[in-house]
Nucleic acid binder design. Structure first.
Lengths: 190, 190
DNA sequence: TGTACATCAGTGAACGCGCGTTCACTGATGTAC
DNA sequence: TGTACATCAGTGAACGCGCGTTCACTGATGTAC
């Protein structure tokens, strides 16, 4: 049966939001179109009324994920709070609600250019935002921001790849957080 | 036809080596057992004479990848040389010959515990080795080593996820390298 | 050392299954008058 | 405002395909005597 235009948009949003979480949890290849649509409350056939292909969904859902996480970043009062949230056990255990870079970087490297472009835009925004939050603006702010982002992404991802409960899993998060916070203080003083 | 015991071992080695490269290039799910065996010069049916399942191959091939890369690390004269090699464009463009952490962390986070355990061992060794190479041993060596490893892995992975040729792709590698080298010098002086 | 037989790595057809995608159908919504 | 018809989002069966795995078969290797 046909559905109101507002409902169509709302349904598309629902699929997009579910996809952005599921992709981060299971990877692009780990989510079947059928499973996705079921999780969104539909049958699989309707998928192609909203998206050309699974590939084009990947790009759209990744963009949605970056949007989600950008909002989450904005909510943080300052850089230390942002770091604590990013490198938390909660974030590690709920990749569907956490950073797309940590969850989908490797997947994206094997995706077509369109997906990579979306990834790059989101990453650029993340770097820029962290750069702006750095109090010291000594020309090394960009370098410092990139140093923070690569460590955040690396630590979160590595922590997920290690067996649940292994000391190394928590060490990676905590040590990265402590190290980053120390650096921020040193820069403030210097 | 039956084959000599030496030949059997050699064939198994070949499959393992090909798998360790292919998995790093295309991910665990991106490599079909048939493709792997063809690449190794066999037909697919013989696979199960060597491995219980694709999953058990994943663990064995990951271990092989860590072994490869540990040898490569040993070849580096000092830490700066190791960093230059790790964060090179060549390493980024040939994931099959580069660090398994950067290529397979996300994949491993979705694999069974056995695979994660292998991942953790390889990562621990990498951290330990870099820690030993740090001249300053001020009790922060472990923290410093983890800071380096997370940055190396994060930068390499992010550089691969960005569109080929984008300025950000090279910037991530170069900035991470420059930043890490500066830190090493500062620690030497301090 | 030579012979007879058991073993088993590699082959390629076959299996069941899940995937992305297509399509005829339905019926409420949107539109033309 | 009311009516007649076209539209099209959602449904669920069906498709072709590639996957991991199994299996009967082959014949050189390994072993027992």
């Amino acid at each position: 049966m046909r559905i109101s235009q507002a409902q169509v948009l709302e349904n598309r949003e629902r699929v997009l939001n579910v996809a952005s979480a599921l992709f981060r949890e299971k990877g692009f290849d780990g989510v079947a179109v059928g499973d996705l649509m079921t999780a969104a409350g539909f049958t699989h056939g309707g998928f192609y009324n909203h998206f050309d292909s699974k590939e084009s969904l990947a790009a759209a859902a990744l963009q949605r994920a970056w949007l989600d996480i950008a909002k989450k970043r904005t909510r943080a009062r300052d850089l230390p709070e942002l770091l604590k949230s990013y490198l938390s056990v909660a974030a590690r255990d709920a990749p569907g609600k956490a950073c797309p870079a940590a969850a989908l970087a490797a997947d994206t490297s094997r995706q077509p250019r369109a997906v990579k472009t979306v990834f790059a835009h989101g990453l650029e925004e993340m770097i820029r935002e962290i750069q702006e939050r750095l109090s010291a603006d000594d020309g090394l702010a960009r370098e410092h921001a990139i140093g923070l982002v690569t460590r955040m992404v690396g630590a979160l991802m590595l922590s997920r790849a290690v067996p649940v409960g292994a000391p190394l899993a928590e060490e990676l998060l905590r040590t990265t957080l402590v190290g980053a916070l120390r650096e921020l203080k040193a820069a403030d003083v210097g």
